[in-house]
Each structure stands twice: as structure tokens, then as C-alpha cells.
């Protein structure tokens, strides 16, 4: 991992940091510049969050204000002990996020490797690959549901019926809801990963590549020994941002499966939607939201710690 480490500039920067900081520390304004953003984020995001915590302790269905009242931990108890959809949603969230993040990373890596070489029309191919990320999620979901995956009129099934023996025409969203949704998520997020990884690949200096080529390394060896170690930091970044963003993806579920059949594609954020919006149950939705935040903090902290360890160069 010497390569990776040698490329980590902040480590070097921070070692040189104290003296530099000391010298620049005379400008008290510098450090304070983070304050406006913190104040803004605290006001806009924490005020509703505190209200959410308060609401989570209430029995409150918007449509039945006469029954509103303090409920203690009842909402949490309901979710944890009595609601089977909650357990399914936790499992689904985990599977969706891990599956979609890993596969988008892999596909993104593949995309990036493809367009990191020169070939005729490379710019166009890169453009084509980026496009799914630019498409409005709602539009993408409706296109996939109606025009691609519809079992009767969908293009995917028409191709399958026409090209494959036995005329298979699977009902994707009905019989394979989880893989279908993960597929659409990967289709949307692989370009994002590609952008990050491409950035990483292009920051590998040409001298390094030439050096190993002179040593007679094959393309695979070059990928394994140079590209991959160098990219690991970029992959971690993609994994982290991908996790934060993909967990919150509700539009495709709302537009394509409504979280079903059954609870098959209900993730925690979508369950919040089902309870709080469709069911007008503010208390239950709030409790669920608080649980999601707590879980996210735990998971992301673990991720960040792992990332930190790796960055220190294991």
C-alpha cells in the first residue's frame, strides 16, 4: 500500500500543518468562517429534528386530532415489537444499500476503465454513460416501470421474448422486485461512481504507468498493481457518498412498486413515508425517522472509522 500512502497528501500536509497553522493562526477570521454554515445547518436541519423527536413521543394521527396526546415510548415500542414491516424494512434497507452501493461501484469502475482509454468516440461514450445520473429520478422510475420493465409492452421483455429461446417474459417488478429496484438504482448511481473513479484514475501520473510498462507489466497487472491501490481511496469516497444518498432514495419505490409486493421493496425511509404521509401517523413516522437517524449515525461512524484506518495506510 505504499502507493496509496504516498499519494495521500493530507497526511503530509497535516504533518507540516502545525507550524503552518501556527503562522496563519494569527488570522482569527479564518477559523470562524465555518460558523455561518454550521449555524445555517443547525437552524434548518436541527430545529425540525428536535420537533421530530418531540412528535415521536406523541400519539398523533393528523386525521384524529382529538386523540393526540403524550405517548411516551409507545411509538418506538410499536415499531420494535409489533410491526413486522419494520423488521422487513431494516433487512431490505441493508440489502438494497449494500447491493446497490457495491454494484454501482463495480459497474462504475468498469465504466471508468472503459472510457479511460483512447478510442474513437470516447467523449460520446462517456456522455452516454453519464446521462442516467442526470435524469430526474421520478422520470427515470416511470420510464423503467412503464417502458422498460412492463411485462406486456416493456422493451426488456420484448427483447427477451424475441431473442431468447423459450420466450421468457418475466414479471420483473412482481416476481423480482428487489433485483429490479437495485438494478435501477445501480443504473442511476454507477455514473456517479464512474465520475469519482475516473477522477481518481486520471490523477495517476503517467510516469508511474510508463514505469511499470517498461518493466513489462500486462494490462491486468497494471490495473491490479497501480490502478486499484490508487483507487481505493476514491472507492471509499464513492461508497460513503453512495450510502448516504442511496439510503434516501424513495422516488423509485414510490413510483415503481409502492414498496411491494407485500413489503418486499419497503426500505426504512419508504416506511417512514407510508406511515407518516400515507397513514397520516405523525407520531409513528417521527419515531421511525429518529430510529433511521440513529442507525445511520452508527453505520456511517463505523464506515468512517474503517475508512480512516485504511487511509492511515493499514
Amino acid at each position: 500500500m505504499a502507493v496509496a500512502q504516498s499519494r495521500v497528501r493530507p497526511a503530509a500536509g497535516r504533518q507540516a500543518g502545525p507550524s503552518l497553522l501556527h503562522r496563519l493562526g494569527h488570522q482569527p477570521l479564518g477559523r470562524l468562517l465555518v460558523l455561518p454554515a454550521i449555524i445555517y445547518a443547525v437552524i434548518v436541519t436541527q430545529a425540525p429534528f428536535i420537533l421530530t423527536i418531540w412528535y415521536s413521543l406523541q400519539r398523533w394521527n393528523l386525521q384524529r386530532p382529538e386523540r393526540r396526546g403524550f405517548a411516551g415510548l409507545d411509538n418506538y415500542r410499536t415499531l420494535l415489537t409489533r410491526d413486522p414491516s419494520f423488521r422487513e424494512a431494516i433487512l431490505n434497507t441493508f440489502l438494497f444499500v449494500v447491493g446497490a452501493v457495491l454494484l454501482s461501484l463495480l459497474l462504475g469502475l468498469f465504466y471508468a476503465e472503459l472510457v479511460n482509454r483512447k478510442f474513437p468516440g470516447r467523449g460520446i461514450v462517456r456522455t452516454l454513460l453519464i446521462t442516467p445520473f442526470l435524469i430526474m429520478p421520478v422520470a427515470a422510475a416511470l420510464t423503467w416501470k412503464n417502458m422498460m420493465l412492463n411485462p406486456i409492452y416493456g422493451v426488456v421483455n420484448w427483447v427477451a421474448r424475441t431473442a431468447l429461446p423459450g420466450n421468457p417474459s418475466p414479471n420483473w417488478l412482481g416476481h423480482f422486485p428487489e433485483p429490479s429496484i437495485v438494478g435501477v438504482l445501480v443504473w442511476r448511481w454507477a455514473p456517479f461512481m464512474m465520475l469519482i473513479l475516473l477522477a481518481g484514475m486520471q490523477s495517476i501520473s503517467e510516469e508511474v504507468r510508463e514505469a511499470v510498462r517498461v518493466d513489462g507489466a500486462t494490462a491486468w497487472q497494471e490495473f491490479r498493481d497501480i490502478t486499484m491501490p490508487h483507487l481505493s481511496r476514491f472507492m471509499q469516497l464513492g461508497g460513503l457518498l453512495g450510502t448516504v444518498f442511496i439510503v434516501q432514495e424513495v422516488d423509485p419505490l414510490y413510483m415503481m412498486t409502492k414498496g411491494g409486493p407485500g413489503n418486499a421493496t419497503t426500505t426504512l425511509p419508504y416506511l417512514v413515508y407510508r406511515k407518516a404521509i400515507e397513514g397520516s401517523n405523525v407520531g409513528l413516522g417521527a419515531a421511525l425517522g429518529v430510529i433511521v437517524v440513529l442507525l445511520s449515525i452508527v453505520v456511517i461512524t463505523l464506515l468512517l472509522r474503517a475508512l480512516d484506518r485504511m487511509m492511515r495506510g493499514v
Binding site: R64, S85, G174, H175, K258, P261, G262, R274, E278
Partner: peptide, 20 residues
């Protein structure tokens, strides 16, 4: 008032039966 939620959830169960 609770039927919006109940109707959604129950019909999800029946949809799960529809797809087997």
C-alpha cells in the same frame, strides 16, 4: 381515518399473494 393506511397495507398483502 386509519383506512388510508390499512387499505394500503392490506392490499400490499394481497399483491404479494397475486405474485405468489
Amino acid at each position: 381515518p386509519e383506512f388510508t393506511s390499512l387499505g394500503n397495507d392490506a392490499s400490499q398483502e394481497w399483491a404479494a399473494a397475486l405474485v405468489g
